[in-house]
Structure formats: C-alpha cells, structure tokens
Design a protein around this nucleic acid. Sequence first.
DNA 1: ATGGCTACGATCCGTAGA
Length: 257
Amino acid sequence: MKLAAWNVNSIKVRLPQLLDWLAGARPDVLCLQELKTEEPKYPRAELEAAGYASVVNGQKTYNGVAILSRLPLSEVALDIPGFADEQKRVIAGTVEGTRVVCVYCPNGQAVGSDKYAYKLRWFAALRDYLAEQLKSHPRLAVLGDFNVAPEDRDVHDPKAWEGQVHVSLPEREAWRALLATGLKDSFRLFEQPEKTYSWWDYRMMGFRRNAGLRIDHILISEALARECASSTVDKAPRKLERPSDHAPVVVELSAAR
DNA sequence: ATGGCTACGATCCGTAGA
C-alpha cells in the first residue's frame, strides 16, 4: 500500500497538478493539507473521476484537510476529539486495517506569539489523541504538514534558523513527544540524500537554491515500520509552473520487511 | 533593508503562510 501527504496550498489552484500527480504516482491514500476551501467548492467529482473518493474537513480561506482513497475508507473522524478548535486541521479514517490520520499542524508564526502558544497547545492535544489512537489501532500512520523541522539536518541553514519558529526547542520537544507515543519518522528509517527538504520559500528562488526545510512527515507505528519499504520526498511537482511551496511525501508499505 | 512570493477575500490592500 502506498500512502502520501501533500500540502497543496489551495486545492482550487492546484487541482490540475493534483490530478496529474495522482495519475503518475497512483497512491492508494493521499492526505491533503491547506485546501483553503469548504465542501461546496471541493472538487469531489473530478477526483472521483480519477478513481479517488474523498473525506473532507474543509474551511474557507485557511486550513482545510482531506483524505483521498482508492480503497474503502471507514471510521472517519474529524478534528481532535475534546480539543476545542475553530481551525480545520485533522481528519482520520481506516483503510485495510490501517488507521490514517491527516494533520495540518499550526505554523506558529513567531516564537513567543499567541499563534506559537496555540501551536504548542495543539501539539500537546495531538500527542494525547495519537496515544489514544494507538491503543485501538496498532497499525497507525500520521501524515501531513507538521511545521516542525525535527533536526538541524532538516534545515538548509541551521545558523540562520537557530531558535526560529519551526526549529525552536519547544517545537522539537513537541515533535519528540509524538514519537514517544510509539511512532517513527519513516523518512529516517532509510538512507537519504543529504539536504532533502519538503518545503521551499516562494521568495528569493528558494527552490532553485534548495533553501528548504523538511517539515512534511509520515509517522508510522512499529507494526507499520516493519513493513515500510521506502519513504521519499517527490520534488517533481515543486518544479512545475505555479507550484505549491510544499512537495508530496510518500511511503510504501509491503509485506514484512 | 526584516524585504523578497503566493493565495484569499474583498478590493486595488490586509492577513497568513513558513
């Protein structure tokens, strides 16, 4: 089974690229972030014509997440239960016995800001939710835009970014608290090219200079880690005209490794 | 120089992203 995540930064603008990417990559499940639209304007029919059913937790202008699947998806759950949040950042479902949680974690804007405090509260709630999910779903995958670069090797210029939002110690501790529930960063289960990132600033030719951050991740439980055959970033869509600033991330799960 | 792009909603700029 092939699982993927992509922050498309507006599904309306990116729909042609999304359809092209689905046709080429053929993931079984794709978690989308930053739809920036709600259900009435969600391109459900176009995606169904491409072979993908959608479950959507939409929001106008900001946020919004969806799970696309070629396989039957059940037990759909929106948001983080028990965490009051206006922002639509989470949707979950079960595919062939694997629990899939799609997340768009808060940006945080700047260390010390209200949005930063919200980000840390949000991560604490996510940690509790994932710990709970793992009890009932040992086969758990959490995919999306985490807005945290876990280590300095995930940052193109660690000196320039030192202490900034996305790399600050409290954010990295919040990331490690997710792993401590029993999840692995699938990307680090494998040898990887140096300076692999998943996001590049639109400004200052960020992609051309490979001035990026690795902030889009796929976390998998021990049971799935044993079956994980690969974990990669697909930079190809970032090279297109009018791209998302994020690239898709992809894992392949096979029979026991 | 704290800028620089991009998307959105409502205009012809402000907010947000990262």
